[in-house]
Structures are given as C-alpha cells and as structure tokens.
Amino acid sequence: MFPADFRYLRAESLPHALDLLADGEDVKVLAGGQSLLPMMKLRLAVPEAVVDIGGITELAGVSPDGDRVRIGALTTYRALQRDELIAARFPAMTDALAVLADQQVRARGTVGGCVAHGDPAADLPAVLLALDASVTVAARGATRTVALGDFLRGIYATDLATGEIVTEISVGAAPPPGQAYEKFEQSASHLPLAGVCAALSVSDGVITSARVAVTGVAGRVFRSFDTERALAGAPAEPASLEASAALAADGAEPLSDQHATGPFRQHLARVLARRALARALTRATGEVPPR
C-alpha cells in the first residue's frame, strides 16, 4: 500500500517552506508523517505535492521564554518525553506521552502535526487545552497566535488556512502542579475513546481554580465548564471531585461509531474525570486522598 503519486519538495527553511506552500494549489505539509502518510495510503488525502518540513531544525525543541514555555512544532513526542523541563513542570503531559500511540510513532510524530491534523481523538490536545495552550501559525510575511480552543474547530478541521504552517505551541510556564491525564484507549489504534486532563490549583484546602479538558468524546476536544465551575471554591476532598466529575460530559454531542456508542463515551469521560481529578489533587497537595 502506498500513496498516490505526488511531487516531493524538501523545505530548507521556514521561509522556503512558506514559498513552496504558496506556489502550489493542493499542497500538504509533511512533518513526522505519522498521521498524514496513513491518510495518503488510504487515499483519504491525495495532495498534488508534499512539502517536507522535517529538516527545519529550528522548529524543534522546548524553550522557556518568560511566562511561557515554547514547544517547537517539530518537537517529537519522544523528544518531549525526554525533556527535563516538561518532566519537571508538566506531569499531565508526561502522563499522556506515556500512553500515546507507541514508541515507534512517538519517535516520529510531532506536536505541531498533532495539532494541525485536528484529530478529535488525539491525546495531547486535551492536555494542551487544560494548560491553556496557544498555537503560533506562520504564513508568508505574517505570523499569528491563536488560543488552542479556537484553533481546533472539529473533526480534522482547524483554523489553519491555505499557505499557513503551525510553527509553535506554547503553554504557561507556571502551570498548577495539580495536573493529570487519564484515558481509556481503543486497543488497536491506542487512540482515546475518552481522555480527560485536569489541572487544579489548591490553597488552604480549597480548590481555587480548575481546568478540565476532554478528548475523544465529541467532534473536538472541549473544556468541561460545568465541572470547572463545580470545582472552583469547593473543598479539596473526594466528595467535591465525585460530584464535579459527574458533570464532565454534560452538554457534549458525543461521537458514536463501531468502537463505542455516544453514551458509553460520556460515561467514560465521567469516570476518567474522577480519576484525573483525584490524581491531580494528589499531586497538588502531595497527599493521597482518603477513600
């Protein structure tokens, strides 16, 4: 099985890539290829030309920058997994990277590719949304930065326009230490039937703020505002988590397919929200909650 014929164009730099992209009618950007190549093999994508940005090394790497941490679009999952700053400050990302795809796919798949692909059942977007990530996009002569929640539009649909390339994802440099990601995977693809990321701030036994994001359940990753509102100001104890997690899938229009029905996905979201919140709380307080 192989893709339909295409012209292969290797970009030497970001400006070169943007020029190549602007020249063609039906051009796809190739980073690690772990989503695009399978789609091309199935003829779900049949581009006339492919611009390989994989060699643009300046688009890879994790770097702190004031109150943000910048993650280059070409940073692989494997590189992210081995990054000390990520390991120290973003335990939810570490959770997700450990259960995301498999070691071979993590070696090639990139953060930028994940976001640009817009798969509604990708793991990392839940973590990035809970961590208030933004996406930087370059076009010829312009760059813009968009909140991830606005960038992801729907099933394989994003805010990325023709001629644009995702160059960077950034997250706040001082995220709450109480964060965790939990998933229930479809065992063949390893994609989440549901995945939930929770990020909690706790002060004097009270949850002062909460962000909870859900992937795999609906046509796009979403924040569970009902859960967040129920948590804000609640005592940092299991009963609060239980009650708020029960709201995690409220209002969602769930996906339903051969792998799982919509109601089952919503059920998973509630269970996983409870688990993610419990682990996040443990990490926030350094204590194991009583059962």
Partner: peptide
C-alpha cells in the same frame, strides 16, 4: 502503522518504515 513488523532504526531510533517516505 499498527503491527510494527517493518520496524527499523533511523538515526538509532526505532521507527515504522511503512510510515516513513524513503525521501524523508
């Protein structure tokens, strides 16, 4: 990209060679 029978090392790291273009 599921079964891993095509796994090779690229620059010393295991990858699935059915999901890498020769050109890459």
């Amino acid at each position: 990209t599921q079964c891993g029978a095509c796994t090779v090392a690229m620059d010393g790291v295991a990858v699935k060679s059915c999901t890498v273009l020769a050109a890459q």
